[in-house]
Design a protein around this nucleic acid. Sequence first.
DNA 1: GATGAATGAGTCTTCATTCAT
DNA 2: GATGAATGAAGACTCATTCAT
Lengths: 191, 191, 191, 191
Amino acid sequence: MPTTESKREDILHSALNLFAERGFDATTIPMIANDAKVGAGTIYRYFENKEVLVNTLFQHYVQLFTDTLLEDYPLDHSIRDQFHHLFEGMVRFTHEHEHALYFIKTHNAAYFLDETSRERFEKLLSILRDFLDKGKEEHKIRELPSKALIAIIFGGFLELYKLIRAGEIEASEELLAGVEESCWDAVRSHE
Amino acid sequence: MPTTESKREDILHSALNLFAERGFDATTIPMIANDAKVGAGTIYRYFENKEVLVNTLFQHYVQLFTDTLLEDYPLDHSIRDQFHHLFEGMVRFTHEHEHALYFIKTHNAAYFLDETSRERFEKLLSILRDFLDKGKEEHKIRELPSKALIAIIFGGFLELYKLIRAGEIEASEELLAGVEESCWDAVRSHE
Amino acid sequence: MPTTESKREDILHSALNLFAERGFDATTIPMIANDAKVGAGTIYRYFENKEVLVNTLFQHYVQLFTDTLLEDYPLDHSIRDQFHHLFEGMVRFTHEHEHALYFIKTHNAAYFLDETSRERFEKLLSILRDFLDKGKEEHKIRELPSKALIAIIFGGFLELYKLIRAGEIEASEELLAGVEESCWDAVRSHE
Amino acid sequence: MPTTESKREDILHSALNLFAERGFDATTIPMIANDAKVGAGTIYRYFENKEVLVNTLFQHYVQLFTDTLLEDYPLDHSIRDQFHHLFEGMVRFTHEHEHALYFIKTHNAAYFLDETSRERFEKLLSILRDFLDKGKEEHKIRELPSKALIAIIFGGFLELYKLIRAGEIEASEELLAGVEESCWDAVRSHE
DNA sequence: GATGAATGAGTCTTCATTCAT
DNA sequence: GATGAATGAAGACTCATTCAT
């Protein structure tokens, strides 16, 4: 017997998958209801409207990802170790929430995001930016715009994950390590 | 005084901007008509329907970008020189067609693309893939999935351009050179 | 208080009247919705689109009319008795479904009818044709194309009914008997 | 080199065919222009709008048909001879203007006909009605509503002509004579 | 006079949202 | 609380009509 809260979870879960696969605008409420096996009206018991739903979803996963990155953050370790921590967080997070990072990446500049969503996303970015900025100070990280460096990291990683999900390649330890190394080389200073 | 053909161009231009900014599904025909300063019905004189419009646009710019990359391709030069040629093509293309590459990147897996669009895009990818594969054979390029490497390059570059367009940073020669170096380091073998 | 099913009935009823009065192409969905006192969108809960609606309507009434004609068909009676049965069925059917026969007559060759509609209509025609053909074999019916004879019968009858509906004449037993006699004289052999 | 007037004729001719085949509402101005090999705008040089066009057409052919029926009308001959004259007029008119009578029959009750069109049509009907009424006085024609009798005559005749046009049967003298006889039997008194 | 490109009002149709059950 | 039938605003698209060439 599903608890009340499980319905809310089901809706969020279905919305995440559909938004990631088709995008917000091409996903209808009936689609989500159908996928979540609830009535369309039920969605409105939990979320005021479609925009509130997508913002809730966005904020939830941005928060979760932020928490993942910050958990046990090795502040006193080397830059490289910190990078590994962040990269490893990305891997773990994607493992646990398959479409979440892709959803965040494809929707973070959308017209329907509210103030809170933008703030939370900015906070997430600031973690990565802080890491990069500190690295730049120490001349361990290139003197390039942080957003561009972040895009390199996420772009490479998520494209890799798409291939894994599509079954085109196998997710091995070496592969992930290879991409991490590639991203690190893109980011680190080569002085 | 606009010539007849300019009307078609206006529509394509407005559609490119709006599709890039909001995405295909969130862009309405009246929006495009309004932006292009034509009647909504006029769009249907030039394009059978919205999907034909987006496919025409997609194919046009993929082709143009492909041609840009292939023009004066330095086949007999070093891998690094070839990489520079490709990166430089990307820079030049984006300079001439502001939103085109971003539009291509955000719509290349969309459900509404037809066979021709997919083929043209595949051909574009194959150019990059061929370059990377040859580089891998020569152990100059990392042994990583080409798609992931391509994503790193485009991701970094486009994010940089967004910042430039937004006026957050200035487009200097060194900056572009820096990003190119970063992308190259992400891609090249470090054996 | 209308039951759920009554809504579908209301739509079909309004559509029948409007299609009969104005024709399919001159009847808009809002007109039907308005007449049926439902929202325009509601029509699409019951019928995939306008063409499905008109085909459903057509098939329904052709079937109903076919059933009416075949009910208690006096196979072993005289040709004249059989004719009376058919004519009487036409009278009764029109009495129960005011615009149905006129709708069928004005739409049976329409471009939007689907395979099933055409088949059902053919089956209806074949009943009348079989009757006429058997009569021709027995030399009780004229040697004329069945379709022309059928047109005479329906034409005379429906025009009569229009006058009755318009209140221009009164529907008396003698009148109907007179038209039946006229149709019979048009159809029967006078050898 | 076509004269100016021939363009007007071409338009009317194309409109007649298309209205007869598809009906007024399913026929577009571009269709007519295309069929008449003129520009769409040209139609508006000759006819104020689509409704004026259809009314002009309707009035023209109703008048022409009326004239055909009245020409050399054998007022002093027998009822049967007069009937033959009318029937023969119908045959000749249809021979000369293939779709005209069918167009009149399918559009005579349409919502877009103006006062003049209705009057002209009424005048046409009155010719037939007068004939029938006089016949009723002389007890040579049945005591039935004239409109119903007229419908029988036109219905049978036009259905026959559809078969001929469709190539399903051949237009022989006997056939036409047979239909005339059938119609006459439907109409005449059998006292 | 003739044309057909351009327009926008009016269709059909979808879908976010409401609400009676 | 849950549902899904019902709604109507809004979007894609058509076509009668205009008008610059």
